[in-house]
Simulated scan of single mutants.
Amino acid sequence: MQGSLTVADAQQDMRTAYLGGAPGLFVSGTVWTIAGLVCL
C-alpha cells in the first residue's frame, strides 16, 4: 500500500515538527527555574 503511514513515520514527523522536543524542554526548565526563584 503506497501512502500508508506507520507509527515510526508518524513519530519521525513529530520529532521534525517539534525540533525533537527542544523548545518544550527549555520552556519547562525556564518555568521550573522561575518557580524556584519565587519560592526563595
Rank of each mutant, 00 (worst) to 15 (best):
Q12I: 02
V27K: 04
G36P: 01
D9V: 03
T33Q: 10
L25P: 05
M1N: 08
G3H: 01
Q2D: 14
T16R: 06
A8W: 14
A17Q: 06
M1S: 14
T33G: 15
A22P: 03
S28C: 13
V31W: 03
A8T: 07
Q12C: 00
T30Q: 06
P23L: 02
D9C: 01
V27I: 13
A8P: 03
D13V: 08
G3D: 04
G3A: 00
M14D: 07
G36S: 01
L25D: 12
G3N: 01
V27S: 11
A35G: 09
L37I: 02
Q2T: 12
A10T: 06
V27N: 06
T30I: 05
G20L: 03
Q12G: 06
C39W: 13
C39E: 15
L19C: 02
M14C: 07
V31E: 05
A35Y: 08
G3M: 00
A10W: 05
R15N: 14
G21P: 04
G20T: 02
W32F: 15
L5Y: 02
F26C: 05
Y18A: 10
G36K: 00
G29H: 12
A22Q: 09
M1R: 07
R15E: 13
Q12K: 14
V31A: 13
M1F: 08
G29I: 13
A35T: 10
I34Y: 04
G36A: 00
G29N: 11
L25A: 15
T30W: 10
G21V: 04
T30G: 15
A35D: 03
Q11S: 10
A10K: 08
G36F: 00
S4N: 12
D13A: 14
M14Q: 11
V27Y: 08
V7L: 07
A17W: 00
A35K: 13
S4M: 08
M1G: 15
D9N: 09
G21W: 03
V31N: 01
I34S: 11
M1Y: 06
S28D: 07
R15K: 12
C39G: 15
V27M: 13
V31Q: 10
D13I: 09
T6M: 03
L40I: 08
A22W: 13
P23G: 02
S28W: 07
Q11Y: 13
L19H: 08
T30H: 06
W32Q: 14
L19T: 03
S28Q: 14
W32C: 14
I34C: 07
P23A: 06
G21R: 05
